[in-house]
Design a protein around this nucleic acid. Structure first.
Lengths: 140, 140
DNA sequence: GCGTAATACTTGCGCCCGCAATTACACCAC
DNA sequence: GTGGTGTAATTGCGGGCGCAAGTATTACGC
């Protein structure tokens, strides 16, 4: 008879796992001069369906607040990884996209990130990842 | 044919889920005057096998650094939720435990946290939680 | 025993980022 | 068009927490 897992314990477990994973991933990514969040932003921008993305959409996909995105992108724009363009249809929005320099950095970092993820999650086989992904999506 | 989930995508999904869950849980717990991490620390201390726990053990179970635990506990000791006692066997350690006031606050907050967790994870049934818990443990 | 390495914790420093308030703009009703 | 409501982004403020370095203590090799 398996011991039943309640929501509270599960929430704690998820939180703990993510804390450990993100810390380790961030440490390793820092070799590339990027924080984990910076990488995730670039990863999203590089694979987004539309070339230029409103900041708030990015915030939603990163699980961050709008102000967090503002602060995250400011130095990336300053260093030229990300470009902002106005939306002629809506002057409130400032769309953001990867610069060509950003695309290059992304490509360099992406393979490294895959290795990091493989390493951090090496305890899971393909079926595990599949199942876990489905449940994580369902939980959100 | 299911699309295969690679480690990188899964890592991103886990990170995103945890960011959302912990933010929401923290917001709701603030009604009790506790941050999520403070609650988790008290929850661990309240259910720990031994009454008094070295700080570093607590840090490990919270996914935090030792310095993070020092800063987390300082105000909790000041307000009397947590007590520290010396370890006569090892003068480097300072063991921490819940005070009776801390136990009372924990009991008050624990039912609230269970409701929050049930609400945040209502998309998962008992079997989902079981499976997810197993995979999360395996991933760690 | 004694020097060296390892461990538990603290502190200085600084980054990350959320919330609340503010600004600027868009949309809707009329 | 005008006034009210909703939305995108920014900024002031402050908390949370990691890393590196420092301190105190313990454990180990010999």
């Amino acid at each position: 008879m398996p011991t039943k897992t309640n929501s509270a314990d599960l929430l704690i477990q998820i939180n703990l796992l993510a804390a450990r994973l993100s810390r380790r991933a961030g440490n390793r990514l820092s070799m590339h001069g990027l924080s984990l969040t910076e990488y995730l932003a670039m990863h999203y921008l590089g694979n987004a369906p539309q070339a230029a993305v409103p900041r708030i959409v990015l915030a939603d996909h990163l699980g961050m607040s709008a102000s967090g995105v503002t602060r995250l992108l400011a130095p990336m724009i300053k260093t030229g990884l990300v470009e902002k363009t106005a939306n002629p249809r809506d002057a409130r929005q400032s769309l953001v996209s990867l610069s060509t320099a950003g695309q290059r950095v992304l490509q360099e970092t992406e393979t490294s990130f895959r290795h990091i993820a493989d390493d951090l999650l090496h305890g899971l086989d393909s079926g595990d990842r599949q199942t876990l992904s489905r449940l994580v999506t369902r939980a959100g």
